[in-house]
């Protein structure tokens, strides 16, 4: 039997991302069960829930990163702009350029700052001249609110930046491939409060151009940055709705227990 899902449905035809009956198995573990969700464009959607509840797994389904784990098996339907991303005609490599991902720990490549940002545009052949590439690098760094801090040392090693700068660089690197969706897997968990505030401000900015889906352990963060929130528990999506409503007036008793700190 399915859990009763309390949500204010975004009309399916306007949804950027829609999943139906999504299941994920890792070997013998059933990590994600029966997830049906419609995620709208130009919105920040937060995924919250206790550790191991399946929220990161769900995120990794959306750009088929689970394909790189041999034991993972994904069934059900995921549509982005109405297209099934498991369709054989879809190249997962192209999909990942369109659906960018920022990881929990900042993971800049051991290259220069410029080469980190230029990585995506280069492998996808997005620019034809050096000047065009420089322009993309600058624009991406500006949008990630990092340009002023690094514009004088673009050729320095990216691994020499501070943690918060590294994470913003990773966001710039992702933006540079001009994705339509940004997935963020606990992007602030390795950062101090100041860097966290900068990234949160940035996320709010990015909403004007992308659909942002962010996994977070901090309910304050979810409340601050997101417009819609989904609560996951034991591999199921328990509740999904407007952030304000979900935090002030949760419909499911499990959601209420989690946000008031009784389970987790």
């Amino acid at each position: 039997m399915k859990d009763t899902l309390t949500e204010t449905p975004a009309a399916a035809d306007t949804a950027k991302i829609a999943t139906r009956d999504l299941q994920v198995h890792y070997g013998d573990t059933h990590a994600l069960r029966d997830v049906d969700v419609d995620i709208p464009d130009r919105t920040v959607t937060a995924l919250i829930g206790p550790s191991g509840c399946g929220k990161s797994t769900f995120l990794r389904c959306l750009n088929r990163m689970n394909d790189t784990i041999p034991a993972a098996r994904v069934t059900g339907e995921i549509r982005i702009d109405g297209e099934d991303i498991h369709d054989p005609r879809i190249d997962p490599v192209q999909l990942r350029a369109k659906v960018g991902m920022v990881f929990q720990k900042p993971n800049p490549f051991p290259k220069s700052i410029r080469d980190n940002v230029a990585y995506g545009p280069r492998i996808h052949g997005l620019t034809r001249t050096r000047a065009e590439l420089d322009e993309v690098v600058e624009k991406s760094l500006r949008r990630a609110a990092l340009w002023d801090e690094v514009k004088d040392r673009l050729d320095a090693l990216a691994t020499g930046l501070s943690g918060g700068q590294q994470q913003r660089l990773c966001i710039a690197r992702t933006i540079a491939t001009s994705p339509e969706i940004l997935l963020m897997d606990e992007p602030c968990s390795a950062l101090d409060p100041i860097a966290t505030a900068q990234i949160e401000e940035l996320i709010d900015d990015l909403r004007s151009r992308f659909a942002v889906v962010i996994v977070t352990h901090s309910m304050q963060q979810a409340a601050r940055v997101s417009q819609r929130t989904a609560f996951f528990h034991l591999g199921r999506m328990v509740e999904y709705g407007d952030t304000g409503a979900l935090f002030t007036n949760p419909a499911d008793p499990r959601t209420e227990s989690y946000i008031t700190g009784r389970i987790g």
């Binding site: 750009n63 990163m65 790189t68 490599v93 192209q94 999909l95 990942r96 350029a97 369109k98 960018g100 991902m101 990881f103 720990k105 993971n107 800049p108 490549f109 051991p110 990585y119 995506g120 492998i123 996808h124 990773c170 690197r173 992702t174 491939t177």
Partner: peptide, 20 residues
Amino acid sequence: SLRDGSLGLGATRSETIRQV
């Protein structure tokens, strides 16, 4: 994490190996 980062940007496996 470096492999994930590169694959997540839409690089193929051999591009990831060569460039990262």
